[in-house]
Amino acid sequence: MTVPRIECRAIVKRLPSGSALLTILDTLDLAIEPGEFVAILGPSGSGKSTLLGLLAGLDRPTSGEIRIDGERIDTLDEDALALLRRRKVGFVFQSFQLLGNLTALENVLLPLELAGVASARDRARELLAAVGLGERGHHFPSQLSGGEQQRVALARAFAPRPAILFADEPTGNLDLATGARVLELLVELRSRENTTLVLVTHDREVARLADRRIHLRAGRIERIACGAAASA
């Protein structure tokens, strides 16, 4: 039996809200296989983004265990988590999160340089070309449209060939057509690079493309649906 790429057992996340503790995630178990595309669905406040943050090692659970490739990450310190992200994890965010003082090309270069990739510049150009922005590398984020910015973010996320990509509402800030194009690119790049994809969305259309759909409600898994393109 293969080791799951991501595995979590009985994770609980509580956050202080005023004087009380608010339970965001309540005793959740989940395993995601290598190369799998999982969508996490649920209404606002159901704990989708919090779960994503925990799985990606951006945040720590109140209790429970999280493993990536069999390694416990909930016990790692900040430095070790940073190194783990550097080696294995890529991100795409709803609000793009490009660094405003870097050009598109430099944004894509950043994780490559951090990882010490030898031909970083070539790889960055290749990815920008793959998202259709080969000629826009010298532009700053403020000079790009929202869809273009998100495509740069896609290029940045895939550039260091992460084993896992976490996407948080990647089309949430885009209009329908642009969103569709970005999503198309995301799925295409994922297949090409054989990346495990964990995608948070409240859009059922987007989730349709996933291998598995995990529905959250009030911090618990409500149901899990399997099979790509299943009925919404």
Partner: peptide, 9 residues
């Protein structure tokens, strides 16, 4: 964002 990309503090 830098921390997300794997930069240590």
């Amino acid at each position: 964002v830098l921390r997300c990309l794997g930069f240590r503090p």
